[in-house]
Simulated scan of single mutants.
Amino acid sequence: MKLLLINPNTSQSVSDLIEAEARRAAAPGTEVRVLTAPLGVAYIETRFEALIGAYAAATLAAEHWREHDAIVVAAFGDPGLAGLREALDIPVVGLTEAALMSACMLGQRFSIIAISARIQAWYRETVQANGLLDRLASIRSLDQPLRDIATVQEDHAERLQALCRSAVEDDGADVIIIAGAPLAGLARTIRQRIPVPVVDGVSSAVNHAQSLVSLAPVPARRGSFAPPPVKPNQGLSEALARLLAGSHRP
């Protein structure tokens, strides 16, 4: 099984965190490849940045999807996830969706721990889009400037754990979701210090992707995830134009 994880952020250091956690989570024999967005921002915080990240993810997916069995959009908020599901004939999984599904199988109400206050609105909308807003206990976040996106876990270790404990004690969370690729692997390192299950987006997405590949679903040809209709286009990369043309579909 070959999994492609696409980091829609431009930070190679974040891709390194994603890859390390993905390899820990992958089953024996599963091959993991991580690609970093060639354009965009260092880390996505806003809806507009997510829009750019979605285009970057679509570009990489169009170029490399044929070589893989499933794709993971490796940014919390899942930029471009639904569109990629329309266009591709392999499973596409997002960090947020995967973490939410894992959390819902571990408890009734979950809290999300994030790296910035600005990101909270977008995360809440993503939870709502997944139909799970009534199970969201809270979103808690760091409130200090980030010195380096690659060292958030080390720079704010105590604060991140305090946020997790507050979500449990003050907000009634049954499960904690550690949000965002820059925090990949943190759930594994702190899980013994938090009194409820702690969920990581990368490891959840890898495991859900492996399950979907094993289930061998038939690609949608009808319904809302049917492939986009063929129509004139311009200014797209060769790979994106080819994907839109649907030449891979029977």
Rank of each mutant, 00 (worst) to 15 (best):
M1C: 07
K2W: 09
L3Q: 02
L3M: 06
L5C: 07
I6M: 08
P8H: 10
T10M: 07
S11R: 14
D16R: 15
D16V: 10
L17N: 00
E19M: 10
R23V: 05
R24N: 13
R24I: 04
A25D: 04
A25E: 03
A27I: 00
E31A: 12
R33K: 14
A37D: 03
G40A: 12
G40V: 04
Y43S: 15
Y43E: 11
I44H: 01
I44V: 06
I44S: 00
T46Q: 06
A50I: 06
G53E: 09
Y55I: 13
A58L: 10
A58F: 09
T59Y: 01
L60E: 09
A61G: 12
A62N: 02
R66K: 15
R66A: 13
E67A: 14
E67T: 12
H68E: 08
A70S: 12
A70T: 06
A70P: 05
V72N: 02
V73D: 10
V73H: 14
A74G: 11
A75D: 09
P79I: 03
R85Q: 12
A87K: 02
A87F: 00
L88Y: 07
D89Q: 06
I90H: 08
L95T: 03
A98Y: 07
M101D: 11
M101N: 14
S102M: 13
A103E: 04
G107E: 09
R109K: 15
R109F: 06
F110L: 08
F110H: 12
F110Q: 09
F110A: 08
I113N: 05
A114G: 10
A117E: 12
R118T: 12
Q120E: 12
E125D: 15
T126V: 04
A129P: 00
N130G: 05
G131D: 00
L132E: 03
L133V: 01
L136I: 05
I139D: 06
I139H: 10
I139L: 12
S141P: 08
S141Y: 13
D143G: 13
P145V: 03
P145S: 07
L146G: 09
R147F: 03
D148H: 15
D148P: 04
I149L: 06
T151V: 01
V152F: 04
Q153N: 13
D155C: 13
R159W: 05
A162P: 00
L163C: 03
L163K: 03
R165L: 11
R165I: 03
D170C: 11
A173Q: 04
A173V: 02
V175H: 01
L183E: 08
G185W: 02
A187Y: 02
A187G: 11
R188Q: 13
T189M: 08
R191V: 08
R191H: 14
Q192V: 05
Q192P: 01
Q192C: 06
P195F: 11
D200W: 00
G201M: 07
S204V: 05
V206H: 04
V206I: 06
A209E: 00
L212S: 15
P217C: 10
R222F: 01
R222M: 01
S224W: 07
S224G: 08
F225K: 10
F225P: 00
P227Y: 07
P228H: 15
V230T: 11
V230Y: 07
K231I: 01
K231F: 07
P232C: 03
N233A: 13
N233Y: 12
Q234S: 14
Q234R: 15
L236E: 11
L236V: 07
E238G: 06
L240I: 11
L244H: 15
A245V: 02
S247W: 10
H248K: 07
R249I: 08
R249D: 11
P250K: 15
